[in-house]
Amino acid sequence: MYDDIRLAERTDTMTDVKIAARNVNVHYGDNHAIKDVSVDIGDRAVTSFIGPSGCGKSTFLRCINRMNDTIDICRVTGDIELNGQDINDKSVDPVQLRAKVGMVFQKPNPFPKSIYDNIAYGPRIHGLARNKAELDEIVEKSLRRGAIWDEVKDRLNAPGTGLSGGQQQRLCIARAIATEPEVLLMDEPCSALDPIATAKVEELIDELRQNFSVVIVTHSMQQAARVSQRTAFFHLGHMVEFGETGQIFTNPQDERTESYITGRIG
């Protein structure tokens, strides 16, 4: 149903820079995983990171909301600024940062709680609702925006783990937007899903662009082409090329990008 590579609608103005990363390096013990990466991520746009396995794209993504803090042997250097503030600054509370920069993971990971409690979890810990009615409202709104409301509205008290894989992933996306983040990081959100569920999630990502800055890591070049406005290509820890998605896919500047896109490396 898609053409070979259907390029996403180009309404990219790229005026506001939401996240600016400069000379980011990441070490896992002795392993130098990210080498000198600099990138600007725009507001209200989808940016995709592509590249072969182990190229560091997920690692870089996890730097943006400091999820790498949870790994003992991981060291991050360089500047990453969100709205002009250095997120690695000592005075920044990673908890507050993560409330602004939400994350969706590769494998759907609903909590073993009810659907309602899964969504309400973020608003509850961040104190976004003053009372039960407000919370109900947030839950409904998030589930609607996660394009899953119609499927679960009759069983909000059923466990989230009982949903199908695609539903679980949309639940996790809804859970992430319930905290009203400014940036949404998605780490291969469709890798565990079948094509139909993938299509639904992709549609959802396109809608989310209206309100959020979305960063998506993906293995699938088609997916990057379909959903993103800007694309960064990672290879062996380096960011090789970064530009408008159309540009990257039709006229790559770097030899390695071209080899990857045409299927010679990867």
Binding site: N65, M67, T70, V95, Q96, L97, R98, A99, K100, G102, M103, V104, F105, K107, N109, P110, F111, P112, K113, Y121, G122, I125, H126, C172, R175, A176, T179, L185
Partner: peptide, 27 residues
């Protein structure tokens, strides 16, 4: 308890103790 469960909670901006109390221990 799978690490994915902790990541899910930390990624939403929960503190470690909130993650433990509301996600890890109930699981």
């Amino acid at each position: 308890v799978p690490q994915a469960m902790r990541d899910g909670s930390l990624g939403l901006g929960a503190t470690k103790s909130e993650t433990i109390k509301t996600v890890v221990l109930p699981a």
